[in-house]
Design a protein around this nucleic acid. Structure first.
Lengths: 239, 239
DNA sequence: CCACATATGGAAAGGCTATTCCAGTTGTCG
DNA sequence: CGACAACTGGAATAGCCTTTCCATATGTGG
């Protein structure tokens, strides 16, 4: 699914004008490319500070380009998200890979949680991204799936060491991300401290020793559906 | 500060036309009172479903009254919030009192957390209310302070039993409420299950037995400031 | 160096929202 | 029952937003 792009974009950084998935219908005029970059920079900044709901007009304004320029380059918000969070998602995947590589799976597991939550704290937009799904943002969803697969294996390994409680469910990670996103959103300047506390408590609770019975985890499909953001009232979308 | 109203509004429910803090500059004409009630009903419904950011126009629409009617009765959103969440806040205070009354403080403590988080799940607007401060909503803030004072004593009692870990900080409750609000917002239909899981994990982590060292709790003043909602970008407020 | 596809900004159309204003009801008190 | 203050809905103003359109400007290949 990702195989066709090979390793080209690592070998030739900045040389080719392709973006995202590789189908360059035409290698953008240089001025256009410059604007594209400006937009991405501005969007990165704005999304990180204010979350991904910022108005498209605000992004264009921050980038110093007209709205038309923004819309031609990124017809939908999801297109923009896909491009803006490409780097961050790469870091997300790498965190999962690094965790798997850790000789101590429990250490990998806890480190992964801490890393990802720190990423949420550092970037409010990313906190949003990790609690929602964007079917149209193919590249982004691909990375998410990739990271998740690694995480599933990480869970198994961590449980095998006996340090992670056996009733830990992979959905718990989603719940944790939503909870942490709530802290990032509401805790303002105290987000780093508040998040760190929350995470420490939860990691504590994930350790095996104590065997309190837990209520059942949320249904995975229902959770996935919730991440589409279609049920929460604020979203009447287009049509 | 609340003393003057005595117990009147328990003895005479529906009889007097006073609202809120007792200064009835003039006991509302009956049709006006009827509309006021309609507005409150609609607002309760809408806020519970969609959170407290719903547009004032939407509230008026749901209530079947003109916008002018809404604005004359509740000049600001905070005025409306104060009236809408009066009941819920009463329940919030009562939950804290009930917890204090429990002969087993640890049981009271955990029960309190579960109850309050359930209230957040049942009412998205209330979830918002518990993570923000509304200086203009006097009645509401009074109740919040009242519940908090009870909670502080509850913490002491629970620590005294040795079941609550000694490094539990009262700010942790705020963090918990923010985290749970995040789940309520993002988890859609799975909110009940997701929240229950989160809460179970956290209560687990609050128990004394394991003595993992925690990062320091967030600064109380900074947290309070964050709850004003002035730092998070989305709010440019008036002027 | 020129033609022209590509790219541009700003305006326009249409839909939201908050808040104020006002001309027209309608309770209510004497 | 009449007069008047209280109350009403909807229009008006002003400000955002999204998305499309277009006349103008500008890289770029021949």
């Amino acid at each position: 699914m990702m195989g066709s792009m090979g390793s080209a974009d690592h070998e030739n950084p900045g040389q080719n004008t392709e973006h995202g998935d590789g189908q360059d219908s035409a290698p953008l005029r240089v001025d256009a490319e410059r604007n594209r970059e400006r937009i991405l920079d501005a969007a990165r900044r704005v999304f990180a500070a204010d979350g991904i709901e910022v108005s498209m007009s605000a992004v264009a304004r921050a980038a110093g380009v007209g709205v038309a320029t923004l819309f031609r380059r990124f017809p939908t918000r999801e297109d923009l998200l896909d491009a803006v969070f490409a780097d961050t998602m790469r870091g997300y995947v790498e965190a999962a890979e690094a965790a798997m590589a850790d000789p101590d799976p429990w250490n990998g597991f806890t480190g992964y949680i801490r890393t990802v939550c720190s990423m949420q704290v550092a970037n409010r937009g990313f906190a949003d991204v990790l609690t929602m799904t964007f079917p149209a943002a193919a590249h982004l969803e691909e990375q998410r799936a990739l990271a998740y697969q690694n995480f599933l294996r990480l869970i198994e390994a961590a449980k095998a060491t006996g340090k992670l409680r056996p009733d830990f469910a992979d959905q718990d990670m989603v719940v944790l991300l939503m909870a942490n996103a709530g802290v990032v959103t509401a805790a303002g300047a105290t987000a780093p401290d508040s998040s760190a506390r929350l995470v420490a408590y939860l990691i504590q609770a994930f350790t095996a020793p104590q065997l309190t019975t837990l209520p059942p985890p949320p249904d995975p499909d229902a959770l996935a559906h919730a991440m589409l953001g279609l049920d929460c009232a604020g979203n009447q979308k287009s049509q």
